[in-house]
Design a protein around this nucleic acid. Structure first.
Lengths: 156, 156
DNA sequence: TACTGATTGTTGGAAGTCCAGCAATATTGG
DNA sequence: CCAATATTGCTGGACTTCCAACAATCAGTA
């Protein structure tokens, strides 16, 4: 959930990056940027960012979710979730209902359109992952995933 | 180079994350977010983001760098570099000089203050890396770095 | 039950980033 | 040498995100 459309930027080889390439933090950052740029790519490009995709998946998996819980699950601020849901609601992918037991909360759920889009997105994301890991063996993929989880274990 | 100060958000265990946790792209994203949040942490907190740190390192390693080259090296847009340099210049860490051979370009270099700050930052970043990899053996660190580089090899 | 404190969604303001387009300057081809 | 093209830094507008503060509502306690 950040800007970045589809510009094809490559690193400038002529420039000295100093100590950066040896920093795991730096490479993690670069990989994430590249990931974001690649996400929307591919034949059937749908107007969704990795963050929005995550939001839709979580809403599908947790019908009538509260916005605050969504915020916690996605690591977004509550106020950001307001904007995000505004966006998705305007596009008819999601709807806010009154929660049953709590008059403060909204119960968020996918609309039929939202569900249909999510189906397409899942296929697209699957392609994206394939592309991402095209150089990886199955074992490497597992190792990579395990190491990523190890970075900040307290956060999951 | 993104917002995010120091809020202590943890994942909500009660919420089903669906297929997300199995996606390398998702875990990469999460790790990057956690990385960002941790970056400024620590005893001597200096007001710099990972992105700004990278900018300073590159400027130090390439005296009289042009803004456009900086943009390519940092994967930022040229217009974003304008803002970033404005910021650093206002803080007296960096200066724009007229380039010698090209009247369009600026030659960016660190000021004495910038260099001094960068020294401190390097120590801080080193601590950050240690924290980041506190659960990693040396071999795991190497493996992790190698796998990160493998994600989008065409970009380096 | 009535207070006190927490939680929920929202708004407003700030920051960082992107893209499209601009004028000034460089570079290249005829 | 000149015209066409490319590059450079910059501005303006749009997004996304954050934080701080708020009113409404809920939950726990005296």
């Amino acid at each position: 959930m950040t800007p970045a459309k589809t510009s094809d930027k490559k690193a400038q080889p002529g420039t000295d990056l100093g100590l950066l390439p040896g920093l795991v933090g730096y490479q993690l950052r670069l990989a994430q940027i590249a990931l974001f740029r690649d996400f929307a790519r591919g034949p059937g490009e749908l107007e969704v960012t990795p963050g929005l995709f995550g939001v839709l998946v979580i809403i599908e998996a947790n019908p009538d979710l509260k916005q605050s819980d969504l915020a916690r699950a996605t690591q977004l601020d509550r106020s950001t979730v307001v904007t995000v849901i505004d966006n998705l609601e305007r596009r008819g992918l999601v709807e806010r209902r009154a929660a049953l037991n709590d008059r403060r909360s909204n119960a968020i759920r996918l609309t039929a359109d939202g569900l249909a889009l999510l189906r397409k997105l899942k296929r697209q994301v699957s392609q994206h992952e394939k592309r991402l890991l095209s150089n990886f063996s199955a074992a490497e993929r597992e190792t990579f995933l395990a190491l990523l989880l190890k970075v900040f274990p307290e956060h999951r």
